[in-house]
Design a protein around this nucleic acid. Structure first.
Lengths: 335, 335
DNA sequence: CTGAAAGCGCTTACAG
DNA sequence: CTGAAAGCGCTTACAG
């Protein structure tokens, strides 16, 4: 492979001049020199060595997409939500000329060594914990955007309006005449995306005087299998006629679990999903859900990061994206 | 951030010795020196600079996952198949201590500059064209594994037995009494995964004397939307009672397109998918499909690459993974 | 077992 | 407009 030196020798100039041409510092080089060097670069199929460039410039052109809270033995793309987010990020990162390094973290502390080691220019964190962000944020010396994180820290982030999502999903069921509505979610603490949705659910129930029939049911993970297991259980419990879930994939599993146990959706049981992934349309009945505009969220996050990398002014705030209910077929009016 | 120099100074040794400790060249350093240096490294939270290391050693620890034939404006994870493959690769790469760089390519020529620029240690190509591989393979100076590629080149690869997949899917429909069976696929040439499946379909039809009712129908892309459009068309055509498809996602769209046009699956029309993704179980009826053991394929590919990187002997051949039919509910017996 | 020297391929001031 | 010098933080022979 050719190096700067080879090109410089061939052109009869110093490597500094070639470097300037490559980096677009065209004011520093005469037009004819530029043209001559560019031709040689082209003829030699010269490609700058990114590792050398990074070492010298402290910039790598790499954007890191980090996914915390993923077990060592876990496949993070099992989650169609993660797949949707990553797909959008990849596209934008590629279009903007950056390189993409993807890494799941079982421990958030793994983030900093990775980022430093590679001189990563900017990072997107998907679903970091509140407490982790607080520690991370101080030590982070590069632009970073947090997707789906609630924190009091001054960070740049993008969230859906999760509280409202939980709220309108629940209100919708109540408006359809349901009174015994449960909330199905992975066990989570007193903060974060899941808790916000739960708060929305609780508020809707309380507003309508239904707090006595309120119930939070926990699943092991946000997966089809967990939803299925929950459905098998719920099928044999009297009273509850509807469920608000925190993920479409959970809702889809739930639907199947109920069906396998002889309960019909929506005739016997109504379900509201969360996300509005393409999968919502694969089921019969199609899933009524909360659209959290996943692609838009990811685009916003990538856009903010790119703006920061271009040194444009970016408001350091956790932006909230509107959510809305998508009526399909998994909810039935109770009379 | 601390550097080797800082650690060396603190330990009162040269940077060479620290370097040897970090790289596990423990024969070259006394035990007490090792212990002392390791403590200092730990206390300083020292992390080696990966760009410097790459530059000096010509190894980066990066594995590139390259996805050719993706349009500039395309999101490659829209395809649940790609998501499944990438998810498995990510997990294995992470577990083996490598870094993952992901890149979609609109032109296969973009691969080499990327790989060279970053001193990428090894690459996995997902679905490269036969013709591209021929040119790529000669210029490739690092270990690479090709997933889903048919080529006469001496490459290391993993494929499903696509011919057999097309064959057994078709035979199954024939055994169920269908005679007018079409083949639904994205337009592809005279080679590659899609063509192999078509050959399998054709062979099954011919063996049973059904070539006159054989028909290949092309869709624009391997997406739900393309399947849906095909379903709307097929619904109004007499005669055809079953369809072999080249992807589950296509089959799922097809099913919906037929239903929207008033045709019931499987009562009026039978469908066989391909892949056996989790999505197969989301639909009603659940999709009968060809299981091509996607996770196993991806694991094999990653395993081969890792073996090559560890300089173990790896057979340079295109390994074929068995496929099998998964009977669910989207096919009905014709009497 | 330890280290001095050279070098990986670039960029960044700085001087002219 | 052009280039000499220093340096980025490592590794790799090689010598002792």
């Amino acid at each position: 492979m050719a190096t700067l030196k080879d090109i410089a020798k061939e052109a009869g100039v110093s490597i500094v001049t070639v470097s300037n041409v490559i980096n677009g510092n065209h004011k520093k080089v005469s037009d004819e020199t530029i043209a001559r060097i560019q031709k040689i670069i082209h003829d030699y199929h010269y490609v700058p060595n990114a590792t050398a460039r990074s070492l010298a410039s402290k910039q790598s052109g790499i954007i890191g997409v980090l996914v915390p809270n993923v077990g060592e033995d876990e496949n993070f793309l099992q989650s169609p939500y993660n797949a949707e987010v990553l797909g959008v990020l990849e596209k934008i990162i590629r279009q903007s000329g950056y390189y993409l390094m993807v890494r799941c973290l079982s421990d958030y502390q793994q983030a900093l060594p990775l980022l430093h080691s590679w001189n990563v220019d900017g990072a997107v964190f998907i679903g970091a914990n509140t407490s982790d962000v607080e520690r991370l944020n101080q030590q982070l010396s590069i632009p970073a955007v947090f997707l789906d994180t609630y924190t009091s820290e001054q960070v740049c982030g993008v969230c859906a309006d999760d509280f409202r999502g939980g709220y309108i999903g629940t209100r919708y069921l109540i408006n359809q005449g349901h009174t015994h509505i449960c909330f199905l979610a992975p066990g989570a603490g007193k903060e974060g995306v899941i808790y916000e949705r739960f708060r929305g659910y609780r508020q809707a129930m309380e507003e309508c005087g239904l707090q006595s029939s309120m119930e939070k049911r926990e699943v092991a993970s946000t997966t089809y299998e967990s939803g299925l297991a929950a459905g098998r259980q719920l099928a044999f419990e009297q009273g509850t006629t509807a469920c608000v879930t925190t993920a479409d994939i959970l809702a889809i599993g739930l639907m199947e679990g109920l069906r396998l146990s002889g309960r019909r959706v929506p005739e016997d049981f109504s379900i509201v999903g969360f996300d509005d992934l393409p999968e919502c349309r694969y089921t019969t009945p199609q899933l009524t859900t909360i659209n959290q505009h996943v692609a838009e969220k990811a685009e916003k996050a990538a856009g903010k990061l790119l703006d920061m990398l271009r040194h444009q002014d970016v408001a350091i705030q956790n932006e909230r994206i509107d959510v809305d209910l998508v009526e399909r077929q998994s909810v039935q009016r109770m009379d």
